[in-house]
Design a protein around this nucleic acid. Structure first.
Lengths: 257, 257
DNA sequence: CGAATCGTTGAATGGATTCAAAATTTGTGG
DNA sequence: CCACAAATTTTGAATCCATTCAACGATTCG
C-alpha cells in the first residue's frame, strides 16, 4: 500500500448512473423536483423530461448569454457556475452537486447570465422550462416545492454574500468545508470525509482568495489538527473545532508547528 | 441662500403616497407584480392585497425567523434587508426601493431568514403568499412575471457576490453608486443626482468595508472630480469616469491634492 | 520519461483595518 | 431660536491580513 495515499477513497456517486432512468426510481427524489408529489404526478413530471444528457468533465452545460429554455437537475457529478466580470475574468458563484438544480438564475429572462461547467464527468436531466411552467400551474404541490428550491437558492447566495462580506480567510474556508460536508451528508455520504471536486484555484476564486492563500489555509488547518488533506481528499478530524472556526468563535494560529 | 447647501434636494418620492391606492392606478405598475397583466387580472391581484401598511423609519417590516405568510411590494420609501451572522452582527444583504419586492427569500420556507427595516418612513402593499400562489396557478402571465422578478433577485445577489469576491474598495463603491443611479433612473428620477437613504455604516456593511473606508473613498471620489457629496446628497459629475472605475478599467489616486 | 499542470512555501509589499481624535450634523429641551 | 448632548462623519497614523512575486515540489498524462 503506497504511503502517499493517506485517505481511502470515498464511495463514488457515479456508480448510480446506470440504475435510475426516471424520476420514480431516482435515488435523489427526496432532494430534487419531485419531492412530495404523488406517483401519478411524478409520472407527469417525468413525461416532460426530454432527455438525460451526459456532460464530460470540463464541458459546458450552458454558457453566459446562451438562450434559456431548460433548467437542469444534476443526476451524477458536480458542476460550477460562474459569471464573467467586466474585465472578462471568471468569477465562480457556486458549486452544485447531485439533486441540485442548474439554470434557475435565468428564470424569467431569455438568456442565461451565468455559465455552468462540469467539474467531472456528469449527467443531468433536462427540464424544458415552458412545459414545467405549465405543470406548475396544474400541480400546486409542484409549484410549492419549486418555490422551496428557489428559496434555497436565494438563501445559499445570501449566505455566500455574508461569507464574502464579513468573514476572514480562515472562517471562509471553514464555512466552505463544513458546508460541503453537510451537503454530502444530506446525500447519504460521510460528512467528515469527501473529495474536493474543484481545483484550489476554483476554491479560491469562489471564496474571494488567491490560490496561495487557499494552500496556506489548508496547511494551517492541517497543522492545527482540524483536517487531514491529501490533494483532493479531505478528512475532517475535528468537526466541532472546524465549526467553531466557521462560526468565528475561534481563530487559527498563524505560524507553524 | 446658505453656502453649505451645495446640492439642491431631489424630488421626494413620498409625495406620491396619497395618489394611488390600488394596483391599477399605481405608478409603479411597470416595475412591480402587475406588469404585463390585463386590466381584469390586475383587479384580481388587487383583490388579494389585504392591506397597505405604513412602516415608520427604523421599524421592522419583518424580522429573522418571523413566520412567513406574505411578501411585500414597496410603494413608498426605502428598506434594507439583513441577516445576522453567527456572532450576532448584522450583515446587510441589500437595499430596496419602490416597486421592488420584499420577502422573496422566505419563499418555500415557513420563516423569514432575513429581516427588513425601513430606512425612512415607508409604505408597502401586503401580498398574502398562499393566495398569490393560487393566482399564479390561474394566471400564466402572472406566474411568468413573478418568476422574472425572482430571476432578477437571483441576478442581483450574484452581482453582489461578484462585487464582494473580486473587486477592490474603490470599484465596489463605484458599482454601488452607479447601481443606485440606474435604479433611480428606472423610476423616472435623475440618474446622476440622488439621496443616499442609508448611513455610511450601512453602506460599508453592505460593501464589506468599514465606515472609515467608506468615508475615505467618498473623499477620494470627490477629490478626483467624479462626485459631489454633501451628507446624504450625491451628485455624479463624471458618470463615464465612475463607470470606468466600476468596470475596473481605472483606479483612483490614493493621495490628495 | 518528460512536459505541463497543479500545489506548496517563503519573503516583501500593499490595501484596508484598527485605534485614536477631531469635526460636523442631528436631535432635544429650555 | 439657541445651547448642548448624542450621533454621525471625517481624517490621521500604525498595524495587520491577504496578496504579489518568486521559487520549488508534486502530480498527471501523453
Amino acid at each position: 500500500m503506497p504511503a502517499t495515499i493517506a485517505i481511502p477513497p470515498v464511495r463514488d456517486s457515479a456508480c448510480q448512473a446506470a440504475e435510475a432512468v426516471n424520476c420514480a426510481r431516482c435515488a435523489l427524489q427526496k432532494l430534487c423536483l419531485p419531492t412530495g408529489l404523488q406517483a401519478a404526478e411524478v409520472q407527469r413530471l417525468d413525461g416532460i423530461i426530454a432527455h438525460r444528457r451526459k456532460v464530460p468533465r470540463g464541458a459546458s452545460l450552458y454558457r453566459m448569454n446562451d438562450a434559456f429554455s431548460r433548467i437542469y437537475a444534476i443526476r451524477v457529478g458536480h458542476f460550477k457556475t460562474y459569471q464573467l466580470n467586466p474585465r472578462g475574468e471568471q468569477q465562480i458563484s457556486g458549486f452544485q452537486m447531485p439533486g441540485e438544480l442548474l439554470g434557475l438564475d435565468a428564470i424569467g429572462a431569455d438568456q442565461h447570465h451565468c455559465g455552468a461547467t462540469a467539474l467531472e464527468d456528469s449527467e443531468v436531466c433536462e427540464v424544458p422550462f415552458a412545459q414545467l411552467e405549465l405543470l406548475l400551474g396544474e400541480i400546486p404541490q409542484l409549484l410549492r416545492h419549486f418555490h422551496r428550491l428557489i428559496g434555497q437558492e436565494l438563501t445559499r447566495e445570501q449566505n455566500a454574500m455574508l461569507l464574502l462580506a464579513t468573514m476572514r480567510a480562515d472562517q471562509r474556508m471553514a464555512v466552505f468545508l463544513t458546508g460541503l460536508g453537510a451537503r454530502h451528508a444530506a446525500r447519504g455520504y460521510a460528512e467528515h470525509r469527501f473529495q474536493l471536486r474543484m481545483l484550489r484555484e476554483e476554491m479560491g476564486n469562489y471564496l474571494g482568495l488567491t490560490i496561495e492563500s487557499v494552500s496556506r489555509l489548508l496547511s494551517r488547518f492541517r497543522r492545527s489538527g482540524l483536517l487531514r488533506v491529501h490533494n483532493r481528499d479531505v478528512e475532517i478530524l475535528d468537526l466541532a473545532g472546524l465549526r467553531a472556526v466557521a462560526a468565528g468563535q475561534q481563530s487559527l494560529p498563524r505560524s507553524a508547528t
